[in-house]
Amino acid sequence: MRTRADLLGWIGLAGRLYLGFVFLAAGLAKLPEPTITEQAVRGYQLLPWQLAPAYAIAMPVAEIVLGVLLILGLFTRTAALGTALGLCSFLIGITSAWARGLNIDCGCFGGGGASADPAYLADTFRDLGWLAIAVYLLVVRRTKLALDDLLFRRGMPPVDDYSESSKKTELGSRT
């Protein structure tokens, strides 16, 4: 029988896989080109100059790790929190560059740096959509076909299934 928790779990699986592959693709595109990524990071003029090389290596690695965790459903909510924080930082970078009148490419999937035709509005809405998926994964708690279920929660009833109404029924049946 399909319950509301089942439906939310399947939606969560779809979101997890989509967001996971997006982050994995973004990380894999940037990882082999640290110099170009460093240029893209410097284009935002937000981080101190000396931090850009370390950030240009750490960011793709973090994206790949988060992407793999989301796809596998391992530490899903922690990965979703990391993804949400990363997306918030990307949103701040893009919108602040927009507000300062910089002309740069976001460099989200490689490339980046100066651009004659920046797409700030599209980038912002795209990242907001991904952020919504990450927040959904945080709030929904359980998704289908996740390694978390195999490793940590075997035999435990989902919290969402244990509703306030069922608690009242149990209490009522005792009296």
């Binding site: 003029q45 937000l46 918030c88 930082s89 701040i92 602040s96 507000a99 300062r100």
Partner: peptide, 10 residues
Amino acid sequence: FGVLRTSWVV
């Protein structure tokens, strides 16, 4: 920290 840094830069 992110808000303070970004506000200062902007």
